[in-house]
């Protein structure tokens, strides 16, 4: 067996195990940590496909930022496991439907040769000196610049909306502007007063 094949199966096995544990782990913090492991291994598999930019971005964005905030929230929750399991049967039809949809999609992708996938030949192997990062950057800022900018605008709007929904001006806080604190001079705080010594 080639070394690359071994690495693929190694990463894939951990990925499948971690993904299973995400939905079967009873403790939500454990589930979130298994999701981190799953992201990390998915990044590894993408690296094998010469997609180093996507792989590293996956780790950087999802593992480094999104999951940290996710854990932040999950750790703060006081989760009652019995309450969580109460709605199992009522949610089952919806969950099953989504599951079946996913299975159909995966079958379509994996069974591609039955649906005329030959019309789309596999891309040629990248040559020497090929940089995935450079290539993505070139395409993103030339051919796809408008969709890219549009997507970033949509995200910006979502971000502003989220901030404005939760922003509350509280009255009566004793917050002091740090710039004012830094700008304080001795003359503004202390006054030296000359006076005669008092006699008893």
């Amino acid at each position: 067996m080639e070394f690359k094949t071994f690495v693929f199966y190694f990463l894939a096995a951990i990925l499948v195990f971690a993904a299973l544990r995400v939905i079967t782990a009873r403790n939500p913090v454990h589930a979130a940590l298994y999701l981190v492991l799953a992201f990390f291994n998915a990044g590894g598999i993408w690296l094998l496909l010469h997609a180093e930019f996507l792989a590293i971005t996956l780790v950087m964005v999802y593992v480094g930022a999104v999951m940290v905030l996710f854990l932040f929230v999950v750790m703060m929750l006081d989760i009652n496991l019995d309450r969580l399991r109460q709605g199992f049967w009522s949610y089952l039809p919806l969950g099953a439907m989504i599951g079946i949809l996913l299975v159909i999609e995966m079958a379509l992708v994996l069974g591609g040769q039955y649906f005329g996938l030959e019309a789309m030949p596999a891309p040629p192997a990248p040559g020497e000196g090929y940089s995935n990062t450079r290539e993505i950057g070139r395409v993103l800022y030339t051919d796809y610049v408008y969709p890219f900018e549009l997507a970033s605008l949509v995200l910006l709007v979502a971000m502003v909306a989220a901030v404005s929904l939760t922003l509350r001006k509280r009255k009566g806080t004793k917050y002091i502007d740090p710039a004012l604190q830094v700008a304080v001079k001795r003359e503004g705080r202390v006054e030296l007063v000359k006076m005669q010594a008092e006699k008893e």
Binding site: F53, I56, T57, V59
Partner: peptide, 11 residues
């Protein structure tokens, strides 16, 4: 992609 790798690992 050394710099990207560093960003990902330090995060």
């Amino acid at each position: 992609a050394g710099l990207l790798f560093l960003l990902a690992i330090t995060s």
